[in-house]
């Protein structure tokens, strides 16, 4: 189980004290690579797939990737977080898209 960081999109959360993925990962797995100042996952196999980092990334630079032993190449599940809702786009291996919009907070 793991996540993939898109190095073109990740900016290491330059303006923040701690990048959101590093701050929030429940497994203490996300870190910043001192060489390029971008996020990486330090123990891929220890990821729980909670998608917290994926949801919180302000650059949409992180994607969940299920291990190949469980999942064929290459379906995607992309969340976009708003103040009181989350929009998900799921694309299956044949390219079919499905969208979901779900409330997250009563305001």
């Amino acid at each position: 189980m793991s996540v993939i960081v898109d190095l073109k999109k990740c900016n290491g959360c330059k303006n923040k004290e701690t990048p959101l993925c590093v701050k929030n990962c429940p497994g203490d797995l996300m870190a910043i690579d001192p060489e390029n100042q971008k996020a990486y996952i330090c123990k891929e196999e220890d990821c729980w797939d909670c998608m917290v980092c994926v949801k919180l990334c302000p650059c949409s630079a992180i994607a969940t990737k299920l291990p190949y032993q469980l999942a064929l190449y290459k379906a995607t599940l992309v969340p976009k977080v708003y103040e009181d809702k989350i929009k998900w786009t799921c694309t299956d291996i044949d390219g079919n898209k499905e969208e979901f919009e779900i409330k997250t907070l009563e305001i």
């Binding site: 998608m51 299920l66 999942a71 290459k74 379906a75 995607t76 599940l77 998900w88 799921c90 299956d92």
Partner: peptide, 10 residues
């Protein structure tokens, strides 16, 4: 959320 991705991937 992983199961939705799993179904899409399989």
């Amino acid at each position: 959320p992983g199961i939705v991705l799993y179904w899409a991937a399989n």
